[in-house]
Design a protein around this nucleic acid. Structure first.
Lengths: 204, 204
DNA sequence: CACCTAATTTAATCTAGATTAGACTCGTCG
DNA sequence: CGACGAGTCTAATCTAGATTAAATTAGGTG
């Protein structure tokens, strides 16, 4: 309703910080409770505001959720793209692939409730929200598809592999870590290294 | 509230069939909408009864959900255990493992809304429900842990592998198929075969 | 200091959906 | 035929939670 010109200019105003606190809280609750289970009152509590304050920043619960989901995918894509860009020219395709494995994992597990929120709820969210995120979704898949295609064309992948299925199996193994990995216990370095060799070599 | 002695004796009475229709419907809705999103009205509609009829068979929404989740895990475990039992003595550990991959996949994708309901909601369900299912959950993991341990002791697995992480990565890849696999298009045989070689050999 | 707008609060409102109460139906058995 | 209980329905009830309305406060600016 109200335009927030000033706020959007100054990315660090008090207002901007409150907005961010709300988004962060929403990501956390959404990730933990799921689409239908996310209560604004919980979000408000975690963000240390009263529930109606949320409406000052977001037009509706759906809008808030949509922004969280969008950020979840977009940040993941940006993070991965940046990491790949940083690799020296001529890095072999297979190595680029293992970098992707590592960065997907690190981003998901170390940095982002947004990522897990987006990952877990992709399937439950209503059509309207899903629709707007389709493009980002596709772009993220595209990166992986390209990595696999390059590796395949370089003759580095097993014969008879179905690239799309392989892609989804890899991403699935990585996405699922959010369900069981406990950031408290357990060493992320070990997970990254195990995941890398699992993706390349399987169990044997 | 009401005891249903007769019903539980005759597994095919009209009553038993209605109860099953409700359970099936609940599994479907739960799988699609998630824990908090499952409305009894939707379940009722799919089961072709009025919502209050559900209370004739289940004490509460929570009880219904709990039964679906329990069945989801238990059936999966039974299915896998039976398939492994059917293998001839002396089947090598690695082959037993690929059978497990195949059966997990087939059960999840071909047979069971219960399985996907249980898989997807394991993390969002409240403590009370989760708690009662922990044991089944553990038993299922145990089967896999044992398969991996045997293969490892037979020296058939890669050196340096962390068995628990490997287990979760494999199960993750399989569980995630429920999120993207479209039973309509796409050939499950191809998926099974790709998953098997991915688990054994990775991408290369 | 007095005011204006941004930010946030408290106090309604409104609705969806779970649950309960109280019939109604229908097959079976005396 | 009349009673009975299982199974189901329609018509309440009750509550949580989203949303809106109407203050209230805070921070800057003339």
């Amino acid at each position: 309703m109200v335009l927030k010109q000033a706020a959007s200019i100054d990315a660090d105003s008090k207002s901007a910080r409150t907005r961010l606190r709300i988004l962060d809280a929403a990501a956390e609750v959404l990730s933990a409770r799921g689409y239908a289970g996310m209560r604004l009152s919980d979000v408000a509590e975690k963000a240390e505001v009263q529930a109606p304050a949320i409406y000052y920043y977001f037009a509706s619960r759906e809008d808030l959720i949509e922004e969280v989901m969008y950020a979840g995918i977009a940040q993941m894509r940006e993070h991965l793209a940046a990491a790949l860009d940083a690799l020296p020219d001529g890095t072999p395709p297979l190595e680029r692939l293992t970098v992707a494995v590592e960065e997907h994992l690190r981003h998901e597990l170390e940095l982002s409730n947004y990522a897990t929120a987006a990952i877990r709820n992709a399937g439950q969210v209503p059509e309207t929200i899903r629709h707007r995120n389709t493009e980002e979704q596709r772009a993220y898949g595209e990166i992986w598809a390209h990595l696999l295609k390059s590796a395949h064309e370089a003759g580095e992948l097993r014969d008879g592999i179905d690239l799309h299925m392989a892609q989804m199996l890899v991403i699935g193994a990585l996405n699922w870590t959010g369900e069981w990995w406990d950031p408290q216990r357990g060493n992320i370095e070990a997970l990254v290294s195990n995941a890398k060799s699992f993706v390349l070599n399987g169990l044997t």
